[in-house]
Amino acid sequence: MTEEAISVPHRESALLRLVKGAALIRESWVGMVGLAIIVFWALVALFADVVAPFPPNATGIPMLAPGGAGLDGTSVHWLGTDQLGRDILSRIIFGSRQVLLYAPLATFCAYAVGVPMGLAAGYRRGITDEVLSFIANVILSFPVLVLYIIIIATIGASGINIVIAVTFASAPGIMRIVRGLVLDLRNREYVFAAETRGEPAWRIMMIEILPNARGPLIVDACLRLGYVIITIGTLGFLGLGLPPPDPDWGKMITETRQFITIFPHMAIFPCIAISSLVLGFNLLADGLREVSLRD
């Protein structure tokens, strides 16, 4: 038992290496700012019940200016109220839950579909590659929003349908990136070694190739998360998002945009909220890229 333990060279656990890798982001201040914004919104979403001063759908005095007093005279609506008298701050706080639930879920699903497709196309090549690449080209030839509108208009608007639409529209892009990485990695010596050992193809793809492609993929995932947040917001804005009355940032903007010339605050704060979250992911992606290029 002990002999065996000695003969195995010391190797840090996968988790520890991941944490150490993630800690590199400290070297990029842009990345740190991005991370701080994301952590801020994650905490807001997690503790929405505690930090929100009002229930998200409770109504009070409508169209109150920021800082106005509530119905009972003592409570304060820090960001004012919307056209139905709902507290805007509380709705933004609770709206962060929708975004931070559906955006990562949709991105994850898109990766779950796109990565195996890209691995298969890049590793097997030949007819598999031709077919998968052609499918990807067809889907990518749609202007993204046109694709979303057609899908949502056909299958209906709901949380799960948004996830399906995002998966369908994003997986081809992910596939292309993975395919490109695999085409490069499949000619490495450790892949030839594994092939010589007789490892099955799925094992070579998942264990030998995929972990070595993680760098660019993590950066892409960050950028894509930001983009999916924009997409979900856009769908909400166009009236194709999550059904009312639960708060959704995109929907909050569209509901209040007709009052923009009289009460601009009602639309401005959700705009700032969603932009800041997207900015967080984009900055983090930029920081990660910078750090990963350095070594």
Binding site: G233, I253, P264, A267, I268, I274, N282
Partner: peptide, 25 residues
């Protein structure tokens, strides 16, 4: 670089109300 990250982080449906608020209100 950072400036272009910031502007591409503001989606159209957010910059439209923001610019409207500024130029129309």
């Amino acid at each position: 670089s950072v400036g272009s990250i910031v502007t591409t982080s503001v989606p159209e449906f957010a910059s439209a109300p923001l610019l409207s608020a500024l130029f129309v209100f």
